[in-house]
Structures are given as C-alpha cells and as structure tokens.
C-alpha cells in the first residue's frame, strides 16, 4: 500500500498527503461531532428557543404570582417558590426533547449517517462522542435556563418582601437540579431517537413519556396512582428541582432518589439506542 502511495503522481491536481499520523479515534470523533452540531442552524435555533421559551414563561409566571398573590409572606414561605420560579422548565423540556432527538435523527433524515459512519466506522466512538456533546450542551443550556429563571424570579418576590436567594433552604440544589432535569430530557430523547431513527416518532415518544403518561395516570383510581405516580418520569425527575417533596397522591421521592429514577428512563433509552446504533445496518 505504501509503495503505491509513494509512486503516485498528481494527475488529478491533488498534492499527496503525508502518511497518516495515527488512528481515527475518540478525540477526532468528538471534534467531528462538535463541528456537526455548531455548523447547523437548526441546533442553534432550537437551543435559543429553549432558553427564550423557558425563561420567558418563568418570568411571566413569577411576575403574575408575585404581583397578584393575596397570600401573606409567611404563607408564601411554605410554598415551593423555588420550583415555581422555574415553571418555564415544564415547556423547556419539550424543546430539549426536540434538541436531543434532532442530534441523532437528523443524521437519518438527511442520510448524513452513512457519510458519518464511513468516516468513523467504529460506531461506539460516534455514539458516545454524540452523547458527550449532547450531554454537555444540554447541561449548559439547562443551567442557563434554571439559573436565569430563578434569579429573575427572586426580584419579583423581593417586591413582595419574600426573601428568596440561592442560599435559601435547598434553593441552590434545586436550581442546579432544574438544569439537570432538562439535560435528562435531552438524553431520553437522544436514546429514543437512536432506537427509532425518526424525528417525529421520537418527539412523540418523548412528549408521551414526559407529559401524556401523567395525564393518563390521573384517570386511574387513587390507590393505583399512589403506587405509580412517583415513578413517572416527570414526577420522579421533578423532585430534583423542588425544595419540598410532596405529592398530590401517595408519597414522593427525595431529590436525588427521584432524579435517579428519572435518569433510569434515560439510561434505558440510551442502551436501546446504543444496541440499535451498533447493530442495525445504517
């Protein structure tokens, strides 16, 4: 092989490259995936939308509640104002589902996956490189959303004489948790996307798991709800961005136990996605 390389002329106008410097490895896969995600407008817009929608809804909610409440400061203190201040996460998670889904399904929708796997045929490299990039980006964007929502919220509540800050009881952990919850939504969608290879199907499944399941369970008898409710993704994951762990029916998990259950959903999806990505013809 090398002898052929050496004797090659440059009829096609190509200057021969120096011999390969090494193996196409995980570092290259990471750089490649990072280039992919930042060179497409749809990712940038999706993430911008996530921030604008989430922080916007949170701000509206904080403004509305803080300026129109009839409760006394003491009564308000018994409410989970930290979680309420980040209400926009409820919608933001849907946009994060879209982001996590598109990170992988767009490769199948466009056919790019065949080019990607030709450049890096070691599929686990591609899968985990994508996973790392999605996790980091969703984490950063998630934390921007939760911190911005909370900090804007504290200003509204301050006008009501309610002292809310990151040093309030459990506040810092819940605000960090808000970003983690959003990250989890993106990862869940990424795993489902790798398994289904279809954008619309993936977003449907994501919305189903995070929203619709809760609604369905609401129609069940209370005794059933008591057993099921706390395991639902949104309810379990919701504990990590709450300071008070109560449930409408039955009991609730603590912050980190709830988050662990929530992340289990994402891990199951990611494993299913990994199997399909590794084994199925591209």
């Amino acid at each position: 092989m090398s002898t052929i390389t050496d004797t090659r002329s440059t009829l096609t106008g190509l200057t021969p490259l120096p011999p390969a410097s090494g193996r196409a490895g995980f570092g290259g896969a990471l750089r490649s995936e990072w280039t992919k995600i930042r060179s497409v407008k749809s990712t940038v817009w999706t993430l911008a939308a996530a921030i604008i929608i989430s922080v916007g809804i949170s701000t509206l909610g904080n403004w509305g509640q803080a300026s129109h409440t009839s409760l006394s400061a003491a009564d308000l203190a018994r409410r989970d104002l930290v979680q309420r201040s980040m209400f926009g996460i409820m919608l933001g998670q849907l946009v994060m589902v879209v982001f996590g889904a598109l990170a992988i399904t767009s490769e199948y929708a466009t056919g790019m996956v065949r080019t990607s796997l030709t450049a890096q045929p070691r599929r686990l490299h591609v899968y985990f490189a994508k996973l790392v990039i999605v996790t980091v980006i969703a984490f950063v964007v998630g934390e921007i959303i939760s911190f911005a929502s909370f900090l804007i919220g504290t200003h509204f509540w301050a006008t009501k004489g309610v002292d809310l800050s990151l040093s309030s009881h459990g506040a810092l952990q819940a605000v960090i948790g808000g970003g983690l919850y959003l990250d989890g939504a993106a990862l869940l969608a990424f795993g489902v996307g790798a398994a289904l290879r279809h954008t619309a199907g993936t977003i449907t499944v994501g919305v189903f798991l995070l929203f619709v399941v809760s609604i369905i369970v609401n129609f069940m008898p209370d005794s059933w709800q008591a057993d099921i409710d706390k395991y639902l993704p949104a309810n379990a994951g919701g504990q990590v961005w709450a300071t008070q762990h109560t449930a409408d029916v039955g009991t609730a998990f603590g912050a980190w136990a709830g988050f662990a259950v929530y992340i289990c959903y994402a891990v199951i999806a990611l494993l299913a996605g990994l199997l399909v990505f590794k084994r199925k013809d591209a």
Binding site: L17, A24, G28, R31, T35, K36, T115, A119, Q120
Partner: peptide, 10 residues
C-alpha cells in the same frame, strides 16, 4: 470539516 476532523486530516 466534519469528515476531516473525524480522521485527523489537516
């Protein structure tokens, strides 16, 4: 660029 980076090409 995406392809070049995956294989460490200049």
């Amino acid at each position: 660029q995406v392809l070049a980076k995956a294989n460490g090409l200049p």
